[in-house]
Amino acid sequence: MTDREKALMRVQTSAFAVTEATLFLDTHPGSREALDYYHKAVNEYNDAVNIFITNFGPLEATQVKSRDNWTWTEGCMPWEGECNVEL
């Protein structure tokens, strides 16, 4: 797995945990355990996103770092196979 693939996988894994925790909390807002898990998952997701966008370009249009180049549309599109991790 390349460094980019590892970083992307970490974003995808943590984001999935955040999504699941979100949906669970929508119907179980009183669950202390789920809320703790949510915050843990969000921290992991934020770390993963920071590593990815620092090294491999923006995941969202507001994450373009360069003052000289418009990097948002650079690189592969996510629906292309080569843009994805092989599992």
Binding site: Q12, L59, M77, G81, N84
Partner: peptide, 15 residues
């Protein structure tokens, strides 16, 4: 909505 430039889960089909 905001777009995140990644799939929720990887799709990489060879053939």
């Amino acid at each position: 909505w905001n777009y995140e430039k990644r799939l929720q889960y990887p799709v990489r089909i060879k053939k």
